[in-house]
Design a protein around this nucleic acid. Structure first.
Length: 638
RNA sequence: GCCGAUGUAGCUCAGCUGGUAGAGCAACUGAUUCGUAAUCAGUAGGUCAGCGGUUCAAUUCCGCUCAUCGGCUCCA
């Protein structure tokens, strides 16, 4: 009998008989780990515990509580759900059912619709399947066998998946538990009885293979954890996150409204929201001027012909609004680049002038489809902290790196973590393949030079060029694109931009489109959720609220108010005839950073007693000391 | 745009199988002058999203429209 060397994670090596399964090897190696082991890694490849080991290998065990293990568990739960659905509902066709970031889903085709009540029935059936403790059994079939197998079972989606596999794939794996069989790469947990905690969350529509030309399937989302406690905890966290929803806080904190009468996707900023936005915008102008940007301003509408020249008319028209002025077609701007191009063209430019950096807090309108609108995060009118940088090809790398640095700095100031993606050429695009390659390489090189970790997002670039996207997450963990850097050779070409080089000849500049916060509205949405409405002092629209104990202190309160306003502190008066506890509760719910209590003691000593949002009482301090405290925090972005 | 769910007072929600609506909080008025998360009393507030249909009668049943929520596709 052949012997094989099995190397374990701790470095030890065991000599085993060839053909033993991973399960057998584990159970003899370390018994106490066995119960929570869901799968294994053989030479780096994830496999089932039932997989036989027939050569020298490095073996790692995947515990249910690890990220990979949780993924295996959830994927297995999705199969259990699919089994339950097929047992309950006649004629359901299965498609795909992967594990995802916080759970799993499975897409079904079914003539009827699944209702929320159906989820309870499905869950019940799933519990039965778990109790039955079916083993997950893997077997391999040739492509042809697999195709006829699924044809016989009336599963056309599975047949399509197999037929679309690359030619060099000759066999596929099938997993079964009980009567249920699914085409699947695996691995899976050993048996359904290992599942301890799961919950089905919601039903949603999803296009087959993510293509809107395909049939809409029904997707059921769920999640699973290793213990009921973890599941309960997760559900609690989700519940808490809902309370941080910016649409809810926007109303509660009186920041903005979106009104049916005005129209969907259109934000109406109330005084506090407008103030918050102003604080952010003022900060941005200052930071851009420090970094060699020129502030510019373009018009809201530009002639249709200009949009034809830029390519927007051919590639972006369905997202644009148009209007007619004196029988001429005008496009309402969905982007800010056109006016910036015209500013560049207003003079002959020398290589000595470059780079030119035009910055505009540009308000744009885009016709977003009704189903995608989402509070501040996705609106039809929004303002970008936009800039277009025109530079020589030699300057490109340094400019991209400087933008990435600015993004990193800005995210640090607001206390955000972000994720980076490089998006490449989409199907619908302008410009030569050669330029696309140059542009993509320039972005990639800058990311490498800045030692940034990034993912590739194939085919997701803008129609005029590739881009680096910086994504932030909302309270529920959904990703939103905020900053972006887009490299563009096409528009300078279309507008025939040029500069005179050292050789006295005309050359074509390269253009970078970039935003740092992205859309101010979206950024504010993320900001509201990030801080749960309790903004740091430097951002808080109301930094302090003055609270009198009784009417007797109103004159002193007025004097304090004037001093604070004069010192540039954003503050409010609460001189109402209410008990102090009542006013404090209200201030607390409005998440005001400081409440300045004024009673007889303070009137006598000419002071105020600040109470911090965290409940801490600072005792009696002079107004000027309080101003210093606030200004210090402002300067440190706290 | 597509799939599903939802739409009752400013907010959160009740309202069984059809007989034109309630609660808490908020608001307003009055009393109370009070020291770190809710003082008491009173008052007012709704074309039950909109339009149409069935019916003696529709918040309730049906249809359409609009909007919102969760996804999908698309995007900052």
């Amino acid at each position: 009998m052949k012997k094989v060397n099995v190397k374990f994670p701790d470095g030890s090596v065991e000599i085993c008989q060839s053909g033993k399964t991973v399960r057998e090897i584990i159970s003899s190696w370390r018994e106490d780990d066995f119960a929570s082991t869901v799968a294994a890694r053989v030479n780096g490849e994830m496999v089932d515990l039932g997989r036989p080991v027939e050569e020298d290998v490095e073996l790692e065990f995947i515990s249910m509580s690890s990220a990979d293990g949780l993924g295996v568990l959830r994927h297995s739960i999705s199969h259990i759900m699919a089994q339950a659905v097929q047992e309950i509902f006649e004629g359901v066709k299965v498609t795909i059912g992967p594990s995802i970031e916080a759970g799993f889903y499975y897409d079904f085709e079914y003539s009827d619709t699944f209702t929320p009540e159906d989820l309870d029935r499905i869950e019940k059936k799933m519990h039965e399947i778990v109790s039955a403790d079916y083993r997950f059994v893997r077997r391999e079939l040739s492509r042809e066998e697999a195709v006829s197998f699924f044809e016989d079972r009336g599963e056309p989606y599975k047949v399509e998946l197999i037929n679309d596999l690359p030619d060099d794939v000759t066999s596929v794996s099938l997993y079964s538990q009980g009567e249920f069989v699914d085409l699947c790469r695996g691995p899976h947990i050993p048996s359904t009885g290992m599942v301890r905690a799961f919950k089905l969350l919601n039903v949603a529509g999803a296009y087959w293979r993510g293509d809107e030309k395909n049939k809409m399937l029904q997707r059921i989302y769920g999640t699973g954890f290793t213990t009921q406690e973890e599941l309960d905890n997760y559900l609690r966290v989700i519940e808490e996150a809902r309370k941080r929803d910016h649409r809810r806080l926007g109303r509660e904190l009186d920041l903005f409204q979106i009104n049916d009468e005005a129209g969907p996707g259109l934000i109406i900023f109330h005084p506090k929201g407008a103030l918050l936005r102003t604080i952010i915008e003022d900060w941005e102008k200052k930071e851009h001027l420090k970094r060699g940007y020129d502030i510019v301003m373009g018009p809201q509408i530009l002639k249709g012909d200009l949009w034809k020249k830029s390519g927007h008319f051919d590639h972006y028209r369905e997202n644009m609004y148009f209007t007619e002025v004196d029988e001429q077609l005008y496009g309402i701007k969905p982007m800010n680049c056109l006016a910036h191009m015209l500013i560049y063209k207003s003079k002959i430019r020398s290589y000595r002038d470059l780079p030119l950096r035009y910055f505009e807090l540009g308000t744009v309108l885009r016709h977003e489809k009704t189903g995608v609108l989402h509070g501040l995060m996705r609106a039809r009118q929004f303002t970008q902290d936009d800039a277009h940088i025109l530079c020589t090809p030699d300057q490109l790398n340094a400019e991209i790196r400087a933008i990435a640095d600015l993004v990193d700095y800005a995210m640090g100031v607001f206390g955000f973590e972000y994720e980076v993606e490089l998006s490449t050429k989409p199907d619908d695009s302008i410009g030569s393949d050669e330029d696309w390659k140059l542009a993509t390489d320039a972005l990639r090189q800058a990311l490498e030079d800045n030692n940034m970790v990034y993912d590739i997002n194939e085919g997701d670039g803008a129609f005029y060029g590739p881009k680096i996207d910086f994504k932030l997450r909302d309270a529920l963990g959904r990703k939103w694109q905020c900053a972006t850097i887009q490299c563009d050779f096409a528009l300078p070409e279309r507008f025939d931009l040029s500069y005179v080089g050292p050789d006295g000849e005309k050359h074509r500049p390269v253009m970078l489109h970039r935003v740092i916060l992205g859309a101010i509205e979206r950024f504010m949405g993320i900001l509201i959720e990030h801080y749960a409405g309790a903004f740091p002092v430097w951002l808080s629209p109301v930094q302090a609220s003055i609270l009198t104990v009784t009417d007797n202190q109103i004159p002193h309160g007025e004097a304090v108010y004037k001093q604070l306003i004069d010192a540039g502190i954003r503050c409010e008066k609460d001189f109402r005839n209410e008990k102090l506890g009542y006013k404090i509760r209200e201030g607390q719910m409005k998440k005001v950073p400081y409440m300045l209590v004024i009673g007889d003691r303070e009137v006598e000593s000419g002071t105020i007693s600040p109470r911090q949002r965290d409940g801490k009482n600072l005792g009696s301090v002079s107004v000027s000391d309080f101003v210093s405290i606030v200004n210090e925090k402002r300067d440190k972005y706290e």
